[in-house]
Design a binder for these strands. Structure first.
Length: 459
RNA sequence: UCCCCAGUAGCUCAGUUGGCAGAGCAAUUGGCUGUUAACCAAUGGGUCCGCGGUUCAAGUCCGUGCUGGGGAGCCA
């Protein structure tokens, strides 16, 4: 007999049919001569109720079954006599595959997110985290579908790299040297290390993506990204996933069009394909989530320049902890004010001062600003950071020497400006931040399977 | 890295002016013919985060360290 998964079973009509299901016991309620077992197999948020009565030969064992035990059930689908579910299974055979210990830490009650983080290996077994990670999985597919439908090519940019994408943050060093041994023994030369030069985990695939955009036109990279910043916030982790499209013959406005289309597409995809799981978040996690999602899908995202943003902030009359003036970067409180209070929807901020942005962003004709764009969204803040890239060799070289970057090291990057350089643009979207946006979850550690943060590397 | 807050049973938390360590849930055992975080009864369960100090006496006061949370910076 072929096993059927609950997502199929619960979404079709199997009444009066005999089925085989396998899963884990979420909860059990005993009466004298029969028991209710609720089974979940991970394919869907929903459980199925199974009735086991004392006619089963191993009923005495079933009565003692513990939460999270793995079991296999053959039974008939019938209309439920009780309230709360349409169908249930009358079991004709139950096999206890594995009896869980009674010390299983997850109980039939709500646990705090902090506690669940300490048992990150078990938390996907809860309703909430199961839902998060099913949505996460669907989103991977949605991203590839979005890009494939638009003729983009997927590029896996390297994770080990010798280039630091200027301004992206501290990097994790990679070495085969034993660092303790190295510290003791002088005279060890980096030339003898695996790559023969300083090597790091990538902080961005952008520079590689630019090379491929000059060959394949429209490309995207999507993979793990590493930042060794000592950040302790609800929005930062040391290992996260970043989506980075890079488009040839594309200016800043088209770049923003693309970003807006992407966010809307992904959000819409989740509402269409993850309905049940999403409902958990609108019901229990964030009461305003439906409204937020509606705004993300249906509003036209505001587009203002950095200079206009400064003006809005300073004219607002609102008191801020940090004083903002032209040339300084926007602080979190300013970003929150713009997205949450002032516009109450996603807003692109463009044309930042060149001094506070990396070397590769295209210098505007005012000579003071660069063609940068950040997308700020309510509650989360920055979710996209991107720019039109500097395609003019001489301007790029000047910017590099200003930032004290060696032309020799970036020879390959500069080559792209020597051989058929064209305007191009791209951005990075924080995958986990997007998940936070559409689930209403407030801590980035709760939308990634095993979060890596300073001092925390368990699991 | 800086600022603020917290750490008591497996979980969530109470603990008064410094004076015998508590509750609900969970677990275990038993009961119950339709339950829905089932219900009813009984039982077991503690390094009060660690270290040091003040005191006749510290979960409670002081110092310090660790861990967790929130905020800031950095960014996606």
């Amino acid at each position: 007999m072929k096993r059927i998964k609950l997502n199929i079973l619960l979404n079709s009509d199997f009444s009066e049919k005999k089925v085989l299901i396998k899963g884990w016991v979420r909860t059990k309620r005993n009466s004298k001569t029969f028991s209710f077992l609720e089974i979940n197999d991970g394919s869907t948020l929903k459980n199925i109720q199974v009735i086991a009565d004392d006619k089963l030969e191993n009923y005495s064992d079933i009565k003692k079954i513990t939460i999270s035990s793995g079991i296999s059930i053959i039974g008939k689908i019938v209309k439920s006599l009780g309230k709360g579910q349409k169908f249930e299974i009358i079991a004709s055979n139950i096999e206890i595959i594995s009896l869980a210990l009674e010390t299983y830490p997850l109980q039939k009650k709500r646990h705090s997110d902090e506690f669940l983080r300490t048992i990150a290996h078990l938390r996907p077994r809860t309703n909430k985290y199961g839902a998060v990670f099913r949505i996460r999985s669907e989103l991977y597919f949605a991203i590839h579908k979005f890009y494939r439908d638009r003729g983009f090519k997927y590029l896996s940019s390297p994770i080990i790299t010798s280039s630091d994408c200027e301004g992206a943050g501290e990097m994790f060093k990679i070495t085969t040297f034993d660092p303790y041994f190295t510290a003791q023994k002088n005279g060890l030369d980096i030339k003898n290390d695996f790559f023969g030069q300083e090597t790091n985990l990538t902080v961005s695939g952008q520079l590689c993506a630019e090379m491929f955009a000059m060959a394949l036109g429209d490309v995207y990279t999507f993979g793990p990204t590493f930042r060794a910043e000592n950040s302790n916030t609800t929005r930062h982790v040391a290992e996260f996933w970043m989506l980075e499209p890079e488009m040839a013959f594309c200016d800043l406005n088209q770049n923003m069009d693309h970003g807006e289309e992407l966010i809307k597409y992904l959000t819409n995809y989740v509402t269409e394909h993850c309905n049940e799981d999403l409902a958990l978040f609108t019901k229990f996690v964030d009461k305003n989530l439906s409204k937020t999602i509606e705004i993300i899908i249906n509003s036209t995202y505001e587009r203002i320049t950095y200079s206009e943003a400064i003006e809005i902030i300073n004219k607002s009359g609102k008191k801020f902890k940090h004083i903002i003036q032209w040339g300084k970067d926007l602080q979190s409180e300013h970003e929150k004010f713009l997205a949450d209070d002032y516009f109450k929807k996603p807003v692109f901020i463009t044309n930042y001062p060149r001094e506070i942005k990396p070397f590769y962003m295209r210098l505007n004709s005012d000579n003071k600003t660069v063609a940068a764009m950040d997308l700020l969204v309510p509650r989360i803040g920055e979710i996209i950071g991107g720019s039109q890239r500097e395609e003019r060799l001489n301007v790029l070289e000047k910017q590099m020497s200003k930032n004290k970057l060696s032309r020799e090291k970036y020879w390959w990057y500069l080559d792209s400006r020597r051989f058929g350089s064209v305007p191009h643009s791209g951005f990075g979207m924080g995958f986990e931040r997007f998940l936070m946006l559409i689930t209403g979850i407030n801590n980035i550690r709760d939308v990634i399977p095993f979060p890596r943060t300073p001092g925390s590397i368990d699991f």
